[in-house]
Design a protein around this nucleic acid. Structure first.
Lengths: 239, 239
DNA sequence: TTTGCAATTATTTTCGAAATTTTATTGGGT
DNA sequence: ACCCAATAAAATTTCGAAAATAATTGCAAA
């Protein structure tokens, strides 16, 4: 916890004014995902105020929201901590994600229609045009790829007809992404993600639900395997 | 919005000290579920401060948490409103609930073991010993029944092995319960809920997953039918 | 009558100090 | 060495006023 962040209010997607609370929510979320705030780390009010230059009220609002997302754990009178990360928790997260996205993809394929198809085609196209790493020699975080990757996975399930299910899958996606970001700082193994994404995309767009789900499950399992094959000292010991 | 609520800090389940924010979170949640705070109603800070006798900071913390639960909608710079309730939203909620609880029950039956069975047996037993209404002549809200009803439904899915899935189902359960409470103030039709619960319980405890799921889906559909068959002026017009 | 703008009022959000609670330290007893 | 109580220090939570923003009202121009 060394860097300083400037206090600016985020603007909403539709251009309306945001709040400091929303702005610091995004910054905290980003720092947790990137591992700048470590799993299990205490989030002391004085240190956060210094780092993010925001007072207690907006800070606590943001932390309460992050707690609801599962990014932070909250305990009355004891404050907030960055959510822990462990092998068991990763396994549980990914199996849940596979279960729920199976439901969501089946519903999307069955009832999503041309709007869903077009969202998916565009999302895949954009992802396929974006390099995984912003440098070719070594891994360098590419925020564009991360944004489009997330959008692709959301597009896959976006035709399911339930804002609840989409929201839950989105939350699980964020949690999985955190593990991926924590791990990728340790190693960036060779992987042809574009082919994996293409196979899922084509199965989905062709209406082959079983193939899409099998591809997606394999995709997620492979991610777990890669995370666990590397240096896992960012994960807490399994209880 | 006429009643006054006393500001006391809730205590945690393990006896540790709570906070005003957690206490007012529970009160707000309860009032929203019961329809004392109406769907779509603006939650003005000055009126809430008067009603709940809590200052802005704990109040906003509670509202942010309720927004994450879907009980309240939050808009930057415009504050908070009680979440809307509509026929379409009810249908979407219940279909999502059926999807997710199907997954959770299958997993519970497949891998829940004796601990799950014993939780379920106890939960069903307690529910079956609790009258739906605290008065026999007319419907009178029985908080004990509500608590045990919720516990029974949670016990059904508690062996699925995913805290995420349990949490999502819990959230959907709360949302459905809100609709039920909003509707039951209008009418309390004759219904043998105990038989419905027993059929689900016996199928689950016997390991008949398909029967348990069919029973549960029918149970939820019947609830929707009852809600929609009554006076639905508490629901906002469908857009 | 309608529209646009400025001023006023109402509401939301934030600030930073005070109050409350937790944690760490110290000293004494067994 | 371990345990307990008291105290001090650190951290969390809350308060209520000030700052910032949205909504409403009133007036003038087209």
């Amino acid at each position: 916890m060394t860097s300083k962040e400037s206090p600016e209010r985020s603007s909403q997607a539709n251009g309306e004014r945001g709040t400091l609370a929303s702005s610091v929510y995004e910054k905290l979320r980003s720092d947790i995902m990137a591992g700048e705030l470590k799993p299990g780390e205490r989030l002391r009010s004085d240190l956060l105020r210094d780092r993010y230059e925001v007072g207690n009220s907006p800070m606590r609002e943001a932390l309460n929201r992050l707690a609801a997302d599962g990014m932070v754990s909250r305990e009355d009178q004891k404050g907030f901590r960055v959510a822990d990360a462990s092998k068991d928790a990763l396994a549980e997260l990914v199996k849940t994600r596979c279960w729920l996205e199976e439901v969501a993809i089946r519903q999307s394929i069955a009832g999503g229609g041309t709007e869903w198809e077009e969202r998916l085609v565009l999302a895949f196209h954009r992802l396929s045009r974006t390099p995984r790493s912003s440098s070719e020699g070594a891994y360098a975080h590419n925020p564009d790829w991360e944004t489009r990757h997330r959008a692709f996975h959301l597009a896959l399930i976006s035709g399911c007809g339930s804002k609840w299910l989409i929201g839950f899958c989105d939350q699980l996606n964020d949690q999985a992404e955190r593990y991926r970001q924590l791990a990728v700082q340790k190693a960036y193994p060779k992987r042809n993600e574009l082919d994996e994404h293409r196979a899922i995309f084509e199965a989905a767009i062709d209406g082959r639900a079983d193939d899409a789900i099998a591809g997606l499950n394999a995709h997620y399992s492979r991610t777990v395997d890669i995370i666990l094959a590397g240096d896992t000292d960012f994960l807490s010991p399994t209880r």
